[in-house]
């Protein structure tokens, strides 16, 4: 199996991510009543160790929300918040950060973002997709990102992520949202797009 993707293929995958994250931003904006700015998504193709390094200082703490995409596509949706951003988002939702309620609110944010992202993906690709309930974990960034990448890209040794940055206006608060498909999942998406 080829390890790389053509520019055309990467553009198509980025466009999928763009529509997915645009949809997700609209949903989040409705939830918190603020405008959301969405970055142009990155298609990250890197050796696994480099992709883990790129996520930030290995031992720094992050809050992660992970959802598993099932059905006709094997992928993970991963949201990462810095401790400050997690606290700010909890503040916008009127819950105490660092509590069970705070974690469950972040899980709900993940649920809403994930469902709208994956919903858009399903509509565009024609794939039937399911989404697991969210899991919220606060831990070392490297432990989280490496575990996610190994589970979905370990055999190939090459990480593939579609990475979008969502910024909440007037709150200087942002989060990153990643789709991590398996190699078979990428092939399935490209096939559905006619590439």
């Amino acid at each position: 199996m080829s390890q790389t993707y053509s520019d055309l293929e990467l553009d198509a995958l980025r466009e999928l991510a763009n529509i997915g994250s645009g949809n997700a931003a609209t949903a989040l904006s409705r939830l918190i009543g603020r405008a959301i700015d969405v970055s142009v998504p990155n298609a990250v193709v890197l050796p696994l160790a480099d992709a883990v390094d790129a996520a930030g200082p290995a031992e720094s703490e992050v809050t992660a929300v992970l959802l598993r995409v099932g059905g006709e596509l094997d992928a993970l949706v991963l949201l990462l918040f810095s401790p400050q951003d997690a606290a700010d988002i909890c503040g916008l939702l009127d819950v105490e950060p660092g509590t069970v309620l705070g974690a469950s609110a972040l899980g709900e944010v993940g649920n809403i973002l994930g469902a709208s992202y994956v919903g858009a993906l399903a509509k565009m690709s024609g794939l039937e997709l399911e989404l697991s309930p969210p899991q919220v974990v606060a831990n070392m960034v490297s432990a989280i990102v490496s575990t996610v990448l190994v589970s979905h890209a370990g055999e190939s040794g090459l990480a593939f992520m579609l990475d979008s940055e969502l910024t909440i206006e007037r709150a200087s608060c942002s989060l990153s949202m990643m789709l991590v498909p398996t190699r078979a999942g990428i092939a399935e998406l490209l096939d559905r797009l006619g590439l």
Partner: peptide, 22 residues
């Protein structure tokens, strides 16, 4: 790093893997 191995001899060296998850 992930997927790597190393051997060291003599004083002054520390081998480390940071942020292990699975």
């Amino acid at each position: 790093k992930m997927g790597d191995l190393a051997v060291a001899t003599g004083p002054g060296h520390v081998l480390a893997s940071i942020g292990l998850g699975s």
